[in-house]
Design a binder for these strands. Structure first.
Lengths: 225, 225
DNA sequence: CCGTGTCAAGAGCGCCGCTCTCGATTGCGT
DNA sequence: ACGCAATCGAGAGCGGCGCTCTTGACACGG
């Protein structure tokens, strides 16, 4: 609730800075993001921008957080809890890919190489796991609906408790082996998108959409969905 | 065959530059690679380095090429063509992961976000596909040894001819559906390694080695190995 | 031994992140 | 309503960056 003129101006300018930074991200990439260029385009002197973001990395962190939130919201909105598990899975995966293709540079910022001296901002974690949480919910709902095959009983991996909670919660059909497959499917989703976006697939498949769908269905099959 | 003193000196200094650059890569990352710093550490003036590499990007390209070759060689050496297909697959995957963990910044250079404004020279392709070729050979050998289940016949994806050649060649057990699974497994391998290396798994699994092995075995199962 | 080509060095251009100082403006508490 | 403190934009400046151009020294093939 910004009431005073100063607070309103501050919020407005902050938004302008992040918007311009996002635009610059799309043209020069994360490593090339220049606070001076943002200031120039904003008609401000570079030092003034430091009133709003104490450093270039803080601005980058802001963009990362916004990116995770935007992608997370996209995934959450795409999920239809009433649909069949396999369809839910595919739909969410498609939504994630669509967002990535529409915002390649933001995606690269989130899932590419960590930027320079790389900060470990703990406060990005809640935003970062939103997509994984949606996928985990699909898995957990399927288990609770009895639509997941019984767990094999053979467990060679141990998943941390907090992660298990996100990956569908407790259920007899969900042991750590199944949860580990969930992690694999999660990273495979992003691995596939990254390979497509970063050019490792160029010339390999003729219909990227069909390949992605087939791949995600294979992953769903692996999960028993 | 450098014979003249000049040629020998040039080759030597070129090697020194790439070595120092690789070392700097490990400390500051690709985005922070500075030609001036390399020159400084070499006791040269920055402009002199430009006699050896016309630009910072050319030096980077060299490092990328060397990286792909090093990783490719690692994968090739790890593969034991006499072993069982599933074991070959796991062994190669482990070797790739081991190299990635030992050379995280080089790995990030190869499989992380593309460097902004940096064009991927076409001559990196042969080096880049070496790992995929090893994995494809495992698949193809398994097919030719009759150790791959028959193809389903249901094909929804089309793989380019050149890629199909790399992915095991021609065999009745290898249709484009199987090959697409090969591409999925390939990108999943690197997706899993990237997630581990870039910190997306932190706190999720307690034993990263066991998780990776389980994940790669799951992928092998998906491929029918 | 001499001309040619290669080399390191230096100066310089415009960019960067970031800091500090200095007036101007704003707004809160009195 | 007013004065003091917080906030703001501007400017100058620091060191470092990639990259270019010029200069003088050196090695080498003819």
């Amino acid at each position: 609730m910004p009431t005073t003129a100063r607070e309103r101006a501050r919020a407005e300018i902050t938004a302008e800075i992040t918007d311009l930074a996002r635009a610059q991200l799309a043209t020069v990439g994360a490593a090339g993001l220049s606070l001076r260029a943002v200031a120039r385009e904003l008609g401000m002197v570079s030092s003034a921008v430091y009133r709003y973001f104490p450093s270039r990395d803080d601005l980058l962190t802001r963009l990362i957080l916004d990116g995770y939130d935007a992608l997370g919201a996209t995934a959450e909105e795409a999920d239809d809890p009433t649909a069949a598990p396999a369809e839910r899975w595919l739909t969410v995966c498609r939504a994630v890919r669509r967002w990535a293709l529409a915002h390649p540079h933001e995606y690269a910022l989130l899932y590419g190489s960590p930027v320079p001296g790389y900060r470990a901002p703990q406060d990005t974690v809640p935003a970062a796991i939103r997509v994984g949480a949606v996928l985990g919910r699909v898995l957990g709902d399927a288990a609770r609906a009895g639509q997941l095959p019984a767990a094999s009983g053979v467990v060679t991996v141990t998943i941390s408790e907090a992660t298990a909670e996100v990956l569908g919660g407790e259920h007899p059909a969900l042991d750590d082996t199944v949860r580990a497959r969930g992690l694999l499917a999660w990273s495979s989703l992003f691995g596939t998108i990254s390979f497509e976006l970063f050019g490792h697939f160029t010339g390999a498949v003729t219909d990227a959409d069909a390949f992605f769908d087939a791949a995600m269905r294979d992953l769903a099959g692996l999960l028993g969905l």
